[in-house]
Nucleic acid binder design. Sequence first.
DNA 1: AGGTGTTAGTTGCAAAGTCCCACGAAGTGT
DNA 2: ACACTTCGTGGGACTTTGCAACTAACACCT
Lengths: 213, 213
Amino acid sequence: MPFTRLEIAVLGLVDGELQVLLARRAEAPHAGKWALPGGVLRIDLDASLDAAAQRVMRERLGLDLPFLRQLCAAGGPTRDPRAPWALSIVYRALVPAENVKPSAGKRIEALAWRPVGDAIADKALAFDHSQLVSQAVESTRAEVERLDLPAGFLPDQFTLGELQSTCEQLLGRRLDKSSFRRKLADREVVEPVEGLMRTGANRPAQIYRLHTR
Amino acid sequence: MPFTRLEIAVLGLVDGELQVLLARRAEAPHAGKWALPGGVLRIDLDASLDAAAQRVMRERLGLDLPFLRQLCAAGGPTRDPRAPWALSIVYRALVPAENVKPSAGKRIEALAWRPVGDAIADKALAFDHSQLVSQAVESTRAEVERLDLPAGFLPDQFTLGELQSTCEQLLGRRLDKSSFRRKLADREVVEPVEGLMRTGANRPAQIYRLHTR
DNA sequence: AGGTGTTAGTTGCAAAGTCCCACGAAGTGT
DNA sequence: ACACTTCGTGGGACTTTGCAACTAACACCT
């Protein structure tokens, strides 16, 4: 019966870059170090792992977001000095960072966005969390690559320009406009919202939403 | 502190078809029904989740195979009537079934290969195991599709014809010979063993092995 | 009003990649 | 010698991709 926790890797685009939301630990072990926000599994409260991850995110970050995906599980006797054997189920969330202002909850001293490059650097985070962030980023980029769209990053409605720019920031490289649009059309991932246009300083753009299956 | 188990989905090619190794349960609950072989996590014995999965496979099936990969975790209060909250970490193994003769170990009444199509059928297996098998098959096929080769299915040395035939059985459809070879060459996944040929009833074939990184 | 700048959206084309089919090569068995 | 099988490669049709040009529609400036 191991000590079982959930860890949440919240990814978002901040300052045009992929960043991860980190919590500074208020208590030992690793007090003062940065780590993924997380909490213990409560078998009296949680109806499933997914529900547990939702609860932890709500308690620690004040967020309630639908785009939560299980990443992996990690376990071993030396992962956490508080327990003889520690098991963590790791979840990944995607958020449109501009709209989301998480607030530090229970047992958290401070919250901050940190570029994923920094967080992945060896020993940058407490416990084995650098490695977990690395996995989260890898799987997210793979999804974007195959246009399995990370809807969490986007508002309900968006223009194709916004979508492309988001993908470019996630992948860290430029994409070709016409190829990008052709693929979207072929795979029917988005559909136009008839009559709605985004107006601004230049030519209005058609507004799209995710295709309803 | 949930009741924590490991479940192993062993996949192999038997009779030219993708099959999964199932155990008939000797005890309640679901006595007599088929399920994935598995066992409880032992924090006094296991140094990691991977090691725990290896131990369970050895104890239940008498196998000791290197190709074991974590698939997902499942948890909830109604998964297993023995515990108020049951957590399972699911692993997937790939074996060249012809060479491997698993033997029923502790608490197992009988072992049998079963085509994955049957096992996936609704309520064919105990607990939520049908769903777990479905995920195992899906992820395995995705790996083969991108030629992230499931080395567990193959001997150390093989011909390209054997490799292609293996992939075809895994995917359940025919592949084109020249495309298949071009992709292998481009991605440098295999390399020829110079001078070694497989002889038989017809033209000898070059023998290959996995490319050494 | 007319010019300029910026983004939206489409089109054309060449290069690269894939799919399908076919052909020669190299063995065995009759 | 001939049929038969699998191995290995090559060619042509077709599709996908990457790049660039072009028009369209707005705001803003002079």
